[in-house]
Write a protein that binds this DNA or RNA. Structure first.
Length: 497
RNA sequence: GGUCGCGUGGCCGAGUGGCUAGGCAGAGGUCUGCAAAACCUCGUACAGCGGUUCGAAUCCGCUCGCGACCUCCA
């Protein structure tokens, strides 16, 4: 294995930095998970796939990753600044269910969709409601530091007091004075001393469904607190990577940094990574805009904007063809192109599995071909080392695929590459596609035994020059998504692209 | 209004101061019973206007257009 200098873009410093884990070979990574009050949509797919790929690549490089991704099942309020209603409780009222029933239901569908997208499960997936004591302890610690205050059974973080000792706004680049003066919600400040303050603990009204006893009375934790509680519990007070969507940068992640410093006197994470948004017609796809498409709708094609269904692997491939820090625009055209690209990659995988090295004494090494292969392999790794540039890595994979296909069709002899390079070609391709990018063959209804029977018939008919029958079989299989490929010396098949 | 980012060929989407991104679509070719697949070749793009430079799509400035965050949001 070559030496890799992985670089990643750190939102905190706004530049690419050499990745150096605090305690190599161990890597601690925390990623903000979903609030389980609705079906997962494309926007949830992006961070899940992005950080799954980070996880996969770090693992590939030999790091031992502990990947923690939370489930938010309480504390997320609707409406403005700490004044709204709990999202899950709201949904529960609508559906006449227990809040935990709602949370369970959407946790299950989230897991189902994430499995379909072939994301690895997190090492630990903690729930906010399972960490109430830890969160209460944090509130007490922050109160002890005199960086929070109690009002009517609620506790608020005192941002101005904090900013005297630390620096609030360093992640998002906010300037505290502007936040204070230029704040928009002049009306709904309520109990807070200042609009920039945020809730650590909220007093629960009598009709509130989810509430716990605390030193300040019955209540529930503020949204930002859970991530601090769970990340520090499972990864320590300072860990390597904190990930999430760009929309969480402010205020959520900013508040996490503030809470971490207030309790532990250090920044919670060394590297902050943020994936960009998925847009639709140039606008962010999100719940607030109501323009989101759920993953299930994509998989089934049941949505007015969808011209057809797109498989989970097509979605995964689609997301990986863009760099994670770029916005990615949704369109049927782009999805269809992704579908074809994905099929091409996967057919290459099938082919790579079949190919073996054939020594041929009469064929000499082709240095130009060898160099092209070696260059592409190195470039694929370099792309991943450069802030997980999957889009570029995929480009190089297609170059490798061309070589594989050339060997497959007999246009390039494996002997011309030499055994070592040939083996490396197949191995690198497989490793990137399956292990790193997480693209796998989707279980089709293809029964290989039946298919081979048909293909034998096909070959027989062809030998007999019964082209009517040949065409019949070919078009019949095509209707089922199978392409028959007439090779020089044999018949093969592929998924239709 | 404040902060930040973006504008690449028909579409999507990478990118580095001079060296082919790639995919999809399209054209031609090889192969083929005909196709398909695969492979080879091709378009010669970087919002506009200035500037820095031997040389910029890549650096700087301005203009135009778009978006994100500032409020729950992946």
């Amino acid at each position: 294995m070559k030496a890799h200098q992985l670089k990643l873009y750190n939102t905190l410093t706004r530049q690419k930095e050499d990745f150096a884990p605090i305690n190599a070979p161990f890597v601690g990574m925390y990623v903000c998970g979903p609030t389980v009050y609705g079906d997962a949509h494309l926007g949830h797919g992006r961070p899940a796939i992005t950080f799954d790929t980070v996880n996969r690549y770090l693992t590939h490089l030999g790091y031992r990753v502990r990947y923690v991704r939370n489930i938010t099942d309480v504390g997320h309020l609707t409406g403005d600044a700490d004044e709204g209603e709990d999202k899950i409780a709201k949904r529960a009222k609508l559906e006449k269910l227990e809040p935990m029933e709602v949370a369970q239901q959407y946790t299950d569908t989230y897991h189902r969709d994430m499995a379909l997208l072939n994301t690895w499960k997190p090492s630990i997936e903690p729930r906010a409601t399972g960490h109430i004591p830890e969160q209460i302890a944090l509130v007490e610690a922050i109160l002890n530091e005199e960086l929070a205050y109690v009002v009517n059974g609620s506790v608020y973080f005192d941002v101005l007091a904090y900013n005297k000792r630390y620096s609030y706004g360093k992640l998002s680049g906010r300037v505290i004075e502007e936040l204070v003066s230029g704040g928009r919600d002049l009306d709904g400040q309520g109990e807070k001393r200042n609009a920039v303050d945020f809730a650590l603990w909220k007093n629960a009204s009598p009709e509130h469904l989810m509430k716990w006893p605390s030193p300040w009375g019955l209540g529930f934790p503020g949204w930002h607190l859970e991530c601090t509680a769970m990340s520090s519990k499972y990864l320590g007070t300072q860990f390597d990577i904190h990930g999430g969507g760009m929309d969480l940068l402010f205020p959520h992640h900013e508040c996490e940094i503030a809470q971490g410093n207030a309790c532990n006197h250090q920044d919670p994470a060394k590297y902050w990574m943020h994936n960009n948004m998925i847009t639709i017609n140039g606008q962010k796809m999100g719940k607030s805009l109501g323009n989101f498409i759920t993953l299930q709708e994509l998989f089934t094609g049941k949505h007015p904007l969808l011209e057809q269904a797109y498989s989970p692997m097509t979605i995964r491939y689609f997301i990986l063809t863009a760099h994670y820090r770029s916005t990615l625009d949704f369109s049927n055209e782009a999805l269809k192109a992704a579908q074809k690209g994905y099929k091409k990659i996967i057919n290459g995988l099938r082919i790579a599995k079949q190919l073996t090295f054939i020594p041929q004494a009469d064929i000499s090494l082709d240095t130009e071909q060898i160099q092209q292969v070696e260059t592409s392999i190195a470039a694929a790794y370099r792309s991943m080392d450069d802030d997980f540039n999957t889009a570029m890595a995929i480009g190089h994979l297609f170059n490798l695929l061309k070589k594989i296909n050339s060997v497959y069709t007999g246009q390039l002899a494996s002997a011309a590459l030499g055994k070592e390079v040939f083996t490396q070609l197949l191995e690198t391709y497989r490793t990137f596609v399956v292990d790193i990018l997480g693209l796998i063959e989707e279980k089709g209804e293809v029964q290989e035994g039946l298919l081979n029977l048909l293909l034998n018939q096909y070959t027989e008919a062809k030998t007999a020059r019964n082209y009517t029958k040949v065409d019949e079989i070919r078009s019949g299989l095509k209707a089922m998504g199978i392409l028959v490929k007439d090779m020089k010396d044999r018949i093969d098949w592929a998924y239709e692209e």
